[in-house]
Design a binder for these strands. Structure first.
Lengths: 196, 196
DNA sequence: CGAATGACAAAAAATAAAATATGTTATTTG
DNA sequence: CAAATAACATATTTTATTTTTTGTCATTCG
């Protein structure tokens, strides 16, 4: 069956994601993924250096598609103030994390594991998100809505200051019920620090 | 040897802490702790309902003595502005966490475990710290240095917004080298949100 | 010849059996 | 009789063993 179609990187990632979702990150072996593709597991090692690399690639793609891409739309909105856009962006980020924790538990578990094991993937993802925020912040600075400064640094500070609401290490706390009020209080403080 | 001295709660906690430091939280059994006290392990169950309860009590006491008590001194300082006091308090908290991570690794591991397992103990500890911050914040509000508001809510927001720098789930990140700069950026934002 | 295979060694994980630890309680001790 | 013990049942951990999985590579296939 090997030459029915050429085996692309994306086809592997599709299969891997599907199998990972089905069995969970603990229970899926690279043989399981190979079986889903009707290839020998050795073949996968021509495309990925290790199981860890494959897991990272799946996670990276999932983060891009599930988190980064939807947020990108908010960055380019033209209605409302920069503060509104920033707030929408943050709420969308937090909401997405909570939703995936509940509804796509296997992938979320995978993402949590990769956060601990592979700094590089997460670092790139965070940089991407910070760059998105920085664009909104820069807009606010340009229009005089926010006080002047280095947008990238301010965005990174905003991201750090809200870690509790989006970093997977705090996922347990998200169920607590005071989270929305807590975020509201943090947001007020940050926004008034941002305002010109 | 049982009646040489009466067995107090504190004597048990002293012994437990010592043994925990020596063997680490993974390797200490309640028999080990009983041996250190020259009593049978059953005796310890007259004082603590379970091993978990004993571990929690040790952690609680350690947190009070190692974290809360030293910070209390800063709250009552009268020199400098409220902002200075707040900054000193935060830096002392962050510094203490980093120091214990490196120098008192067993107790820090224990504290990290309890953070995950026993919400109640940590909740009480955080409340205590937030109340300390609230006192400083209230001082700043009274003097007109900070804008008016509910000190307790503001303090809680400050604590949330700096979680990345003191919550044990982020301990790995503390070694990264950009932490001081990151904290500085967050602090600037928060302080300018606080200022009248 | 480029891509995939399948046989293989090494590493890791699952399983089963033995040993230790936790938690309870009837009995002992001062 | 208050406090501690020691014997016990249950639960958990450790250890030794077997099985699975990972990663490599010489060979095969189209």
């Amino acid at each position: 069956m090997s030459h029915d179609q050429i085996l692309t990187r994306d086809a592997i990632l599709d299969a891997a994601e599907q199998v990972l979702r089905r069995y969970g990150p603990e229970k899926t072996s690279v043989v399981d993924i190979a079986k889903a593709l009707n290839v020998s597991h050795g073949t996968l090692y021509r495309h990925f250096a290790s199981k860890a690399a494959l897991r990272e690639a799946v996670t990276e793609r999932w983060l891009d598609a599930s988190i980064s891409a939807p947020l990108e739309a908010i960055v380019h909105r033209t209605d409302g103030s920069a503060a509104d856009r920033l707030r929408s962006w943050m709420e969308a980020l937090i909401q997405a994390k909570r939703t995936y924790l509940a509804q796509d538990a296997e992938m979320f578990a995978m993402y949590t594991a990769v956060t601990v094991e592979s700094v590089a993937v997460i670092h790139a993802h965070v940089d991407h998100l910070v760059r998105q925020m920085a664009q909104i912040v820069e807009g606010g600075m340009r229009s005089g809505e926010f006080k002047a400064g280095r947008p990238e640094d301010v965005a990174r500070a905003l991201f750090s200051a809200t870690a509790r609401f989006h970093h997977p290490a705090h996922a347990q706390e998200w169920l607590s019920g005071t989270m929305d009020a807590d975020f509201e209080a943090v947001w007020r403080l940050l926004l008034s620090g941002l305002a010109a």
